[in-house]
């Protein structure tokens, strides 16, 4: 079940579209926020709220890379490794995350503080290598800088 606030938010978003089903992507974002990730409960809640069959909701949800299908850490480190970042050393940074924080691609630290998601391009190529932690951009990354950044996220 979605919270009352979430249902209200969804109803407002719903008004932006001529069809309820068009609100599916935003609804999945809301459900992901509410449930932490998109599991059966989350899909059922969205399906009930929008009248979209739940198998379809899940089909759509699993198509997009930014929806999560398992529990994640409190903060999601989203490191870009596409060409511009790669040629400026992104792979070394991913090794660093692994060695220093035990963060494997797609994995979560045992204390549930961080999860690591390897991103395709995040549009920060001019300041590569770059990453997003939750909704915040961090650019011109170095190992030291990453250490500083992650300190901010508890």
């Amino acid at each position: 079940m979605l919270s009352k606030a979430a249902i209200k938010e969804l109803n407002e978003i719903r008004q932006k579209y001529p069809d309820a089903s068009a609100a599916l992507l935003p609804a999945l974002y809301i459900a992901q926020r509410e449930f932490g990730y998109l599991g059966a409960d989350a899909y059922e809640a969205v399906s009930d709220a929008l009248g979209v069959p739940r198998a379809i909701a899940r089909g759509v949800g699993t198509f997009y890379a930014m929806y999560k299908h398992k529990p994640m850490g409190r903060h999601i480190v989203q490191l870009c490794t596409n060409v511009s970042c790669m040629i400026l050393g992104a792979e070394k940074l991913s090794d660093f995350l692994k060695n220093k924080y035990g963060l494997e691609t797609g994995g979560t630290t045992p204390d549930k503080r961080f999860s690591l998601v390897i991103m395709e391009c995040i549009g920060a190529c001019g300041t590569a290598p770059a990453m997003l932690v939750d909704d915040d951009f961090y650019e011109n990354l170095t190992e030291k800088y990453i250490e500083e950044i992650l300190e901010k996220y508890k």
Binding site: L25, Y64, A65, M66, Y67, E120
Partner: peptide
């Protein structure tokens, strides 16, 4: 006008 947010698909 409204913003519709994609979800990670090139």
């Amino acid at each position: 006008l409204a913003v519709h947010r994609g979800a990670g698909a090139y």
